[in-house]
């Protein structure tokens, strides 16, 4: 039965990838990537049971959280064209790297 569920999940991942390739807007692609991440978690859990290796549950647990943070980070970048808070960029002695990132953000903004 784990095989059946894994096949369902794999089919969903294929559909999500198709949507990520076709999606007319950026947000369609992000929705698809979000679904893909959730399905990856489920597939990891199922693989853990299929191969009888409980370590996979720890990886899945980590993957839930990383997936969430990744989606939020991508959305924040998409909406604000910047990942760092304003304070990091304007603090005294801001590094050259932070300035470069700000310049990159400005470039994206002007597309």
């Amino acid at each position: 039965m784990f095989t059946v569920a894994s096949l369902f999940v794999l089919a969903t991942m294929v559909l999500a990838l198709l949507r990520a390739v076709r999606g007319p807007t950026v947000y369609d692609r992000i929705v698809a990537v979000n679904v893909f991440g959730t399905m990856t978690v489920l597939l990891l859990v199922l693989i853990g049971f299929l191969t009888d290796r409980p370590e996979f549950e720890d990886i899945a647990l980590l993957y839930v959280l990383i997936n969430f943070v990744a989606i939020i980070a991508v959305l924040k970048f998409e909406l604000y064209s910047s990942l760092a808070g304003p304070r990091a960029a304007s603090a005294e002695g801001a590094t050259e790297k932070a300035r470069d990132e700000a310049a990159d953000g400005a470039g994206v903004d002007g597309r």
């Binding site: 784990f2 059946v4 999940v9 969903t12 929705v31």
Partner: peptide, 17 residues
């Protein structure tokens, strides 16, 4: 539970398309 859950996952993929 596992098979119905898998079916709901597949439904969400179909809905995505």
């Amino acid at each position: 539970c596992i098979v119905v859950g898998g079916a709901f996952c597949l439904l969400s993929g179909i809905g995505l398309m």
